[in-house]
Each structure stands twice: as structure tokens, then as C-alpha cells.
């Protein structure tokens, strides 16, 4: 009797395992090639063969390493170990390595440059004419470093106040490597200033050096009101833009976010134009736009937003924030967002 029970039990165990493994699709093969995007521009074309259709996956910049793209193929297994690590062309991408992470496969694509400069696209092609399954294609291109001469016709004639967050006696948040928020916000604001001014906008900054706007060691509310006053005392200020770097107690928190003051529809519009341009440019986690009871937003009478570029408390985003390339990328994106806002008006 007891033997029968043990036999029954064992066969049931096998059955459970068999059902599980049969339902898990696999990654079967990988190949890549270098193709021409134009006469002097190449891109890297990668194909991952899957034996499933409508496979769920996600491709993003690795929030923990800004020189990597992270591809997650959900609920799959690796067919063989040859796929573990494959060298790529070396210029557009160095290497792709596949790894089993729980139920998913994670593929890390390492780049010899900051992922903010990578232009990447992915598509899932189903191969009905051939065998069953599908192919996940990823195309990566390195974007050239663009100079500041952007053409943004809609900003001309508008008055814009830029507020680089913190400054002077107030360092703002400080990253794990000691980078200060006040330094980043001023650097990005200055780049935004240059682009907007060269396109014919009237731009005023609440500070142009590392200083308190009101007075050293002033109260936080006095300091914030002084920034609001810059926008309020000018005639015809059209929009107010406060630039910050985010921080959180948990160092893994990451991403880009834009805040606006609730009752302002125009503020919300401005926030969403700028946010979507920033996300397109930096590929970081999109934390979206949010309504917030922030002092400088509430007390300014014109449409206003507060931008959180990325998390200075996150080790990798701190180094991004500190790089001139990333600062330029973000400044250009902010300006494109502002331009779209005035175009839509």
C-alpha cells in the first residue's frame, strides 16, 4: 500500500515538473550584423530567435549602469550555453550576455559610451512563413554629439525665468560621490539659457553663480519666495522653470519626473511636453508628471514646472548628471519641450 502511494507521489511530481517546463518558451539563437543607416553612419542590427510568439519583453537603459542596455525577456529559458556571452562590433556595442534571472532571461548589451547617446529600437517579428516562433530585433545607433545650435522658432519673443535649484549655503542633495545638486542645476540651467537666448527668447535666471538668491543661511521659505519674486517682478513672464536633481533615502530609486501645480492646466501642459522630450532623450525611467504643492510652483502666477532631471542619490544617475554630455542632452530636451509648448499655444 505505502509503495503505491510513494509511486503515485513521484509520478505526480514528474507531471508537475513536465507541465511547468513544457510551458516555458526558450531563446534559441542570436546573430547580429552591421548595416548602413546613411553614407557615413552605421547601425548594429541584432536578432534574437524565440520559439514563442507575442513574447513579452522590455528594453531600457540599465538604471544601475548607464553604459548598458538591459533587455528582459519574460518567462523564458536559454536553449544553450553558447549564448551566454557574445562579442559585438566593439564600436556601437561591445558585447551581449544572456543570463537566467529567475523566470526571465536578462540580456546585458554593453556600450563603449553613455547609453544616453544610444538611439535604440526594438521590434518583435513573427515568422509565420518559416517555422513557429518569432524574432526579436534590436537596432542600436550611436547618436553624434550635437552642438548647441538648435532651431526652435516658437520660443522667440517669450520671457522665460529659469531657476537653478538651491545654491550658495544650500548645496541641495548630495550624491554618494559627493556631487552637489546646486552644481548640476546651475550647469544645466546655463545650457538651457544659451539655447533659448540664441533662439530669440528673453531669459532671466534666478541665479547665475553659486549663491543664495535671498541671503546666505536664510530660511528656506525666504529663499523660495526670492526665486518666485524674480518671475513676479518682471513684466510679462510667460513661464517659470525650476531645475532640480532628485534624491531619495533608497539609493536604487531612479528616473526623471516633472512637477506642476494642480490647478494650472497650462502648467500641466508644459510639464508633459518637457517630460516627454527628456524621456525620449535620456531613456531613463519615466516617472511621469505629477501635481505637487511645491512653493515655487504655487506662488508663481504664470505656468510653472519643477524638473527633477534624475536621482543624484543613485550612484549611476549621479555620474550621468555630472557628465557634460548628459547635461547638454537634457538641456536640449528641455528646450524642445518649451518650444513645443509655445507652438501648441
Amino acid at each position: 500500500m505505502s509503495k503505491k502511494i510513494i509511486f503515485l507521489f513521484l509520478s505526480l511530481m514528474f507531471l508537475v515538473q513536465a507541465v511547468c517546463s513544457a510551458s516555458v518558451p526558450t531563446v534559441r539563437d542570436f546573430r547580429y550584423s552591421i548595416l548602413k543607416a546613411s553614407a557615413d553612419e552605421n547601425y548594429l542590427h541584432m536578432e534574437i530567435k524565440l520559439d514563442s510568439v507575442n513574447q513579452k519583453y522590455n528594453l531600457q537603459v540599465n538604471p544601475d549602469n548607464n553604459k548598458q542596455l538591459l533587455l528582459t525577456i519574460f518567462n523564458t529559458r536559454l536553449k544553450n550555453d553558447n549564448l551566454k556571452q557574445i562579442d559585438l562590433d566593439g564600436t556601437i556595442a561591445q558585447q551581449i550576455s544572456f543570463q537566467q534571472k529567475g523566470n526571465d532571461i536578462q540580456a546585458v548589451i554593453s556600450l563603449p559610451y553613455n547609453a544616453g547617446l544610444a538611439d535604440y529600437k526594438s521590434h518583435l517579428l513573427s515568422q509565420e512563413r518559416h517555422l513557429s516562433g518569432s524574432a526579436l530585433t534590436i537596432d542600436v545607433k550611436k547618436m553624434p554629439n550635437k552642438p548647441n545650435n538648435m532651431s526652435l522658432s516658437a520660443v522667440a519673443g517669450h520671457t522665460i525665468v529659469l531657476d537653478p535649484g538651491h545654491g550658495g549655503s544650500d548645496s541641495g542633495a548630495v550624491g554618494p560621490d559627493g556631487i552637489m545638486e546646486k552644481t548640476i542645476t546651475l550647469a544645466v540651467a546655463q545650457k538651457v539659457y544659451n539655447i533659448l537666448v540664441s533662439n530669440g527668447a528673453a531669459v532671466v535666471m534666478t541665479r547665475t553663480t553659486d549663491k543664495d538668491v535671498y541671503a546666505p543661511n536664510d530660511s528656506a521659505a525666504e529663499e523660495l519666495q526670492a526665486r518666485v519674486n524674480v518671475a513676479e517682478f518682471l513684466k510679462n513672464t510667460d513661464i517659470f522653470i525650476s531645475i532640480h536633481a532628485n534624491s531619495f533615502t533608497n539609493p536604487t530609486a531612479n528616473g526623471t519626473e516633472t512637477f506642476y501645480y494642480g490647478p494650472s492646466y497650462q502648467g500641466q501642459q508644459l510639464a508633459s511636453f518637457v517630460q516627454s522630450e527628456m524621456i525620449q532623450a535620456n531613456g531613463l525611467t519615466d516617472r511621469g508628471t505629477s501635481e505637487a504643492n511645491f512653493y515655487v510652483l504655487k506662488h508663481t502666477s504664470m505656468p510653472s514646472i519643477l524638473i527633477e532631471l534624475a536621482f543624484i542619490s543613485n550612484y549611476n544617475e549621479e555620474s550621468l548628471l555630472n557628465s557634460d554630455t548628459f547635461q547638454t542632452l537634457m538641456a536640449q530636451a528641455i528646450c524642445r519641450g518649451i518650444n513645443k509648448y509655445f507652438q501648441a499655444e
Binding site: G165, H166, D170, G172, A173, S219, A220, A221, E223, L224, H244, A292, N293, F294, Y295, K298, H299, L306
Partner: peptide, 14 residues
């Protein structure tokens, strides 16, 4: 406390 670190308006009850 009117402001904590330069973001939220704490001058009025939240």
C-alpha cells in the same frame, strides 16, 4: 517649519 529643503510649501497646514 515653513519649508523643509526647498520644495513643498509647508507655510500652511498640509
Amino acid at each position: 517649519l515653513d519649508a523643509l529643503s526647498g520644495h513643498m510649501d509647508l507655510t500652511a497646514p498640509v
